[in-house]
Nucleic acid binder design. Structure first.
Length: 329
DNA sequence: GGGCGTCAAGCGTAT
DNA sequence: ATACGCTTGACGCCC
């Protein structure tokens, strides 16, 4: 089992997701930003190894405007050696890597232009994994997309796009995650049956949207869609409901009791677990400690001391930030 | 040098 | 009709 967290390390003083405004685009700016992002990515991966966290989701903005037409900079060639060096580090330490292209990637949109841009974004993110020399167990994780008032037709469109418009290099890496409002685990499993695409399991989304499958059973249904050698072990996102917040909002920090309860449902199934929790590596470190205590992760080297994180206030003193409505002109 | 409006991209839902 | 949330963070203008 490998434990990880997405995109951002809040301990390190660098960011692997620096970007800039489209209006500020220049080749020089692009080159400098990618160089800084890759240098930081390397630092994050080293920090993770030092703390026993072997799963990481890289942010979509390593190459700003990576699939935008404004970006004609030959970043693949310019940074080939840098990507390869990071890939060598990943392989050396047995790290698992994923990307999660964001909400604009919609393979089942009725709008061909949206589908085309979505495929281009997947090609961009897949190319980074290719440049790192990682095998097909490194994944690109997306959702099934919109419903457009007719989910069966929308799912059929997804499968047809996958079959005809998604290049082979992306197909081998693409996985679909059950979401919390539209496409449940069961519907994603239907997509797997038609296309063979593995289903990335999100326990929190499954709590929000399901057909009565118990967690233990749901985990096994998803795990069965992953080919052991081609895809690797099941990737999953772990989170839980933020107390006293809108339904579907992720918790700010790991709630150990709920996590331990989830481990009961896991019941020995091997997974690589991404903690989608607001305080990032702090909760990942705690989860890893908890798992080591149960013998589910190997012990850290003698003398290892986990970092001390500032305990967060139990409830914010300031009211939640409210977006100010823009006054009409 | 702090505050805050705004940022490439889509979709469904709440109000 | 409009605003919001989603992996939100951080850019960059304004004072």
């Amino acid at each position: 089992m490998k434990i990880g967290y997405p995109c951002v390390n809040e301990t390190l003083p660098c960011s692997a997701a620096s970007t800039f405004r489209l209006a500020s685009y220049s080749p020089e700016r692009l080159e400098a930003t990618v160089a800084a992002n890759l240098a930081c990515l390397r630092q994050i991966l080293e920090w993770n190894v030092a703390h026993g966290l072997l799963f990481f989701r890289i942010g979509s903005d390593v190459v700003p405007f990576g699939s935008h037409e404004v970006n004609t900079f030959p970043w693949q060639e310019r940074f080939a050696a840098d990507f390869e060096a990071i890939g060598a580090y990943v392989r050396q330490h047995g790290l698992r890597i994923s990307f999660h292209p964001d909400q604009f990637v919609v393979l089942n949109s009725p709008d061909p232009a949206i589908v085309r841009r979505s495929v281009e974004e997947l090609v961009y993110q897949g190319a980074m994994l290719d440049l790192m020399g990682l095998d097909s167990t490194a994944k690109l994780q997306i959702h099934a997309g919109g419903a457009y008032g007719d989910k069966p037709a929308a799912l059929a469109r997804w499968a047809e796009t996958f079959r005809t418009l998604v290049p082979e290099a992306v197909k081998t890496r693409l996985v679909v995650e059950n979401d919390d409002r539209l496409y449940s685990l069961r519907e994603c499993l239907g997509l797997h049956e038609v296309t063979g695409v593995p289903i990335l399991f999100d326990n929190f989304h499954h709590e929000c949207l399901n057909h009565g499958e118990p967690m233990r059973e749901a985990l096994r249904l998803a795990a069965a869609t992953w080919h052991p050698t081609r895809d690797g072990v099941l990737m999953m996102d772990y989170s839980s409901q933020a107390p006293d917040e809108r339904k579907g909002k992720h918790t700010d920090t790991l709630i150990p009791e709920l996590f331990e309860s989830f481990l009961t449902d896991l019941d020995g199934l091997d997974v690589d677990m991404m903690l989608e929790i607001k305080d990032k590596e702090a909760s990942a470190v705690r989860a890893a400690q908890l798992l080591r205590g149960r013998g589910l992760l190997p012990p850290m080297p003698a003398g290892y001391a986990p970092p001390a994180f500032e305990p967060r206030p139990a409830s914010p003193v300031t009211p939640p930030k409210k977006r100010i409505t823009k006054p009409k002109a």
